[in-house]
Simulated assay, not measured.
Amino acid sequence: MAAATAKLRLAASAASETDLVVDNVSMHFDTREGRVTAVDGMSFSVERGEFVSIIGPSGCGKSTVFNILGGLVGGYEGKVSVSGETITGPHPSIGMVFQEESTFPWRTVIDNVAFPLEVKGVAKAERYDVARKFIDMVGLAGFEQRYPAELSGGMRQRVAIARTLVFEPKILLMDEPFAALDEQTRVLLGDKVLAIQQELKQTTLLITHNITEAVQLSDRVVIMTFRPGKVKRIVNIRLPRPRQGDVVGSDAFGRYVAEIWNDLREEASRGMAESEAGARKGRS
Rank of each mutant, 00 (worst) to 15 (best):
M1L: 12
A2I: 15
A3Y: 11
A4G: 01
A4W: 12
A6W: 04
A11E: 14
A11D: 10
A12R: 14
T18K: 06
L20A: 08
V22S: 01
D23V: 08
D23G: 00
N24L: 05
N24D: 13
V25T: 11
V25A: 09
M27C: 04
H28C: 04
D30L: 14
D30H: 15
E33H: 10
G34N: 02
T37Y: 03
F44P: 00
S45D: 15
P57K: 09
S58A: 13
C60L: 10
S63Q: 14
V65L: 15
L69G: 02
K79A: 14
K79S: 11
K79V: 11
V80W: 08
S81G: 07
S83M: 13
E85Y: 02
E85T: 12
T88D: 15
P90V: 08
P92I: 05
M96V: 09
F98V: 13
E100L: 01
E101Q: 09
S102V: 07
T103P: 06
F104Q: 03
I110E: 11
D111E: 09
V113G: 01
F134W: 09
M137T: 07
V138E: 00
G139T: 07
G139L: 03
L140M: 03
L140I: 03
A141P: 00
R158H: 01
I161C: 01
L165Q: 03
F167V: 04
I171D: 01
L172D: 09
L173K: 06
D182N: 10
Q184E: 15
Q184G: 00
V187M: 08
V187F: 07
L194R: 04
I196D: 01
Q197N: 09
E199V: 07
L200D: 02
K201N: 12
L206H: 11
I207N: 05
T212L: 09
Q216E: 10
V222D: 11
M224G: 02
M224F: 11
F226W: 12
R227P: 02
P228G: 08
G229I: 12
G229K: 10
V235W: 01
D246E: 14
G254C: 06
R255Q: 11
Y256C: 02
D263T: 00
E267D: 08
G271V: 13
M272Y: 14
M272F: 11
E274H: 02
S275W: 11
S275D: 13
R280M: 11
K281S: 11
